[in-house]
């Protein structure tokens, strides 16, 4: 009975139809209903003398500045693991849950909430990308000590729903063929060497993405006797993508951002309207 089933699988696959989301950037539903992303911070509601959120933040994303003349709190989304504990702890509602997930950024500073939104000059990445890569990209992923949450979401990129191949983006086994080194984890002492070797083996021009809060800043798991605090002092990072883990559309958004096919959405720690690059035509 079980002999000639491969044609059945073909029929089965055809009958299932197209499962891939039409999502690509802004329009269409990316399938993330209910997602709780980075909490939003409203300085006006923040209460003097209170440090409830600071005490409940394990990775130290919220820090307290005792100098009253300046802003009291600094929120660094590059350290946030989206546990939402600060939202529960805040007595005045200055921190609220949001569905913000597109937090890819070219500059580490753009992940820090600041009163005056940072200017975006100098943010344009090398024009070379378009010229060299066309619109395609090959990625070498290196797990430098993740909890495997990031791997779970990276593996999801190739499922029929997100179907990363449709963007011309591929994972490649050899760093020799890779344009982008995508790193997860806080970088353990034992993975530091293999990670740097993978980077060295890549041909120029090469780019680096820190995917997940661990790779951006160490997160909850960095430091200690066995870990670094992410990539920042180790490799030149082109895109920072915090999240714990970043969900698949956030990863796709960050990849398209790198290829200049999608604009950066976070500036000065705030999700805002897309920045304008009139000379670029986003796919």
């Amino acid at each position: 009975m079980a002999m000639k089933v491969i044609p059945l699988w073909t029929l089965y696959g055809l009958a299932r139809g197209k499962a891939t989301t039409r999502w690509c950037g802004e329009d269409a539903e990316p399938g993330q209903a209910g997602y709780l992303g980075m909490p939003r911070f409203d300085q006006a509601k923040c209460q003097q003398g209170c440090r409830e959120c600071v005490d409940t933040c394990l990775p130290g994303a919220i820090t307290f500045c005792p100098d009253a003349s300046k802003q009291r709190l600094t929120v660094d989304y590059g350290r946030c693991v989206v546990c939402q504990l600060c939202v529960e702890a805040c007595p005045t509602g200055a921190l609220t849950s949001s569905t913000d997930w597109a937090f890819g950024s070219r500059r580490r500073e753009d992940l820090v909430w600041t009163r005056a939104a940072a200017s975006t000059d100098g943010m344009t990445l090398k024009r070379e990308i378009r010229r060299v890569f066309g619109r395609s990209l090959h990625i070498r992923h290196v797990d430098a000590g993740s909890c495997n949450g990031c791997e779970s979401e990276l593996q999801a990129l190739n499922n029929p729903y997100y179907n990363l191949h449709r963007f011309g983006v591929f994972f490649t086994p050899s760093p020799r063929f890779a344009d982008l080194l995508l790193v997860t984890g806080p970088v353990t002492y034992a993975m530091r060497g293999p990670l740097l070797e993978a980077y060295e083996a890549m041909p120029d021009p090469r780019f680096v993405m820190a995917a997940g809060t661990c790779a951006v800043s160490g997160g909850t798991n960095g430091g200690g006797y066995a870990c670094d605090n992410g990539l920042e002092e180790l490799l030149p990072v082109d895109v920072f993508l915090p999240g714990c883990p970043p969900n698949p559309p956030a990863i796709i958004h960050a990849l398209l951002m790198l290829l200049q096919r999608s604009p950066q959405r976070v500036q000065g720690g705030q999700i805002g309207p897309a920045d304008e690059h009139p000379e670029d035509d986003y796919a």
Binding site: D143, G145, G185, T188, A190, G224, Y225
Partner: peptide, 9 residues
């Protein structure tokens, strides 16, 4: 290779 020292954390 991925020993992060979680118990110590």
């Amino acid at each position: 290779f991925k020993h992060r020292g979680m118990e110590k954390r």
